[in-house]
Amino acid sequence: MDRASPVARFWSEFAESKTALIALIVVLLMIGLALAAPLVAPQDPYDLANLPLMDARRPPGYVGSSGYTHILGTDAQGRDLLSAILYGLRISLQMGLIAGAFAFSVGSALGITAAYLGGRWEAFIMRVIDLQLAFPAILLALVISALLGQGKAQLIAALAAAQYAYFARTAHGAAAAERGKDYVEAAFSTPLPAHRVIWRHILPNCLPPLIVVATVQVASAIALEATLSFLGVGLPVTEPSLGMLISNGFQYMLSGRYWISIYPGIALIILIVAINLVGDQIRDQVNPRLKR
């Protein structure tokens, strides 16, 4: 008799996919490097007053005026590119996770509430959601970010506003399916308040598909933030994310200084692909129809 817990069974099945396991290790490694950036980075890329301009646009392996080797070279401001990438990872992950959490909370609440209310309120809420889904997320994020201006709070608001509809649609579909089941009808027939039935009974059974969407949307939020920063409407130049690092080096690509854009771009691609691979494996395990 299998006495393993659901978590242990889930992890055992997850570990069967070597690709997903490697992707998870890569994600955890990048998160660890981002958190430890102040300890492992040879330079503080945010300290603009102490950046040596004489070391600007130097190739990989250059020994700077500060005495240490710039393994990945420097950018146009004299930043050590390895340090800038580590700190950029911190910002990109921070923006993606916080924006994803806000989008998850707002979207899930709207979707489950719509399924519970039914009737005209459900139709109104879901038509608004469908209207937003008709527009590309990058277009909505770009417009909202341009209206709100630069800054972390403004960027998080723009990313969450552009992505909550995906969570709302998923939560509504899952909650609508649960709403008609016997255990929910039995719960509503008791003196329990409606909000307790929703959050204690319906929501837990809606979490598996929402978790899958969350992994995908975190990667999407990181890509959106990089795009907005590349276009100049994301974070300020004093806090360069991976997207801004790519943007800073774009003008030097044709002059042979490829490393300024290429290395941050490689770090961004690895992060997004690894998160998506983890999300794909979780989706395959959560959805029985996709199991091999």
Rank of each mutant, 00 (worst) to 15 (best):
T238C: 05
Q150G: 02
A114T: 11
Q77E: 10
L231T: 03
G96M: 08
A221C: 12
L39S: 13
A219H: 01
G256T: 07
R3I: 14
P60H: 05
I112M: 15
F124N: 09
A23P: 06
P136V: 07
A36Q: 10
I85S: 01
A15H: 11
L39T: 10
A153M: 11
F135P: 07
R169F: 13
R169T: 10
L81N: 01
R257P: 02
K181N: 00
N50L: 12
A146Y: 03
N50K: 13
Q94W: 10
P38R: 09
A123L: 09
F104V: 04
K18W: 10
L117C: 10
I91C: 06
M244W: 06
S189K: 00
L48D: 04
S247T: 04
T19W: 07
H201D: 13
R200P: 00
A157M: 12
P193W: 03
P191R: 04
A76Y: 09
D284S: 13
Y116W: 14
G173A: 13
A49M: 12
A267F: 04
Y263K: 04
L131C: 12
Q43N: 06
I222W: 07
A226F: 01
W199K: 04
G119I: 09
Y62C: 03
V26H: 06
R127T: 13
L148E: 02
Q154R: 12
A177L: 10
A103W: 11
Q132I: 11
E185A: 08
E185S: 05
A187W: 01
S220M: 10
I98V: 15
M1T: 14
L93M: 15
V212D: 07
I98R: 08
A101Q: 05
M95D: 06
G107Y: 09
R9T: 12
H70K: 01
V40N: 09
L140F: 05
T170G: 07
L86H: 04
N276I: 01
V213A: 14
S105G: 15
L203Q: 07
I156D: 01
M126C: 09
G64F: 03
P240H: 06
N205H: 13
R257D: 08
V184I: 14
R3Q: 13
I272D: 00
R283F: 04
